[in-house]
Nucleic acid binder design. Structure first.
Length: 102
DNA sequence: ATCAGTCGGCGTCACTAGAG
DNA sequence: CTCTAGTGACGCCGACTGAT
């Protein structure tokens, strides 16, 4: 996940596409080993399932990221307010101290 | 009205980390 | 080692906006 600083992980380097589509695992069951049509259907089914799952995962991931960013923005707002309050408090104390020493 | 630029969301692919 | 979930990167699309 992302660091508390708001950094995103950076570790991905793209390479040219591999020969097989993503998520396709060629492991035919013994029954279908010699039936090319069934094998092809199995490959297609697995690919579609993988795509469906990845689609949902991507949706979830984006939602999570949006919430994370919103959370960071809220934190910024809170800290800015705190900072403002502290600056005013410091100013008031300084004034008080000046008048005391007059 | 239309054209170009920008933005946000989506689907997909490539890749990694972690679980089993 | 293999499988799966999570996520960055990329390309596409539709909505919106300002300039002409």
């Amino acid at each position: 996940m992302w660091a508390a600083t708001g950094d995103m992980p950076v570790y991905q380097i793209r390479t040219p596409a591999s020969s097989l589509p993503q998520g396709v695992v060629v492991s035919p069951s013994t029954n279908n080993l010699h039936n090319p049509q069934i094998m092809a259907e199995e490959v297609t089914r697995k690919r579609e399932l993988r795509l469906l799952k990845n689609r949902e995962a991507a949706r979830e991931c984006r939602k999570k990221k949006k919430e994370y960013v919103k959370c960071l923005e809220n934190r910024v707002a809170v800290l800015e307010n705190q900072n403002k309050t502290l600056i005013e408090e410091l100013k008031a104390l300084k004034d008080l101290y000046c008048h005391k020493t007059d």
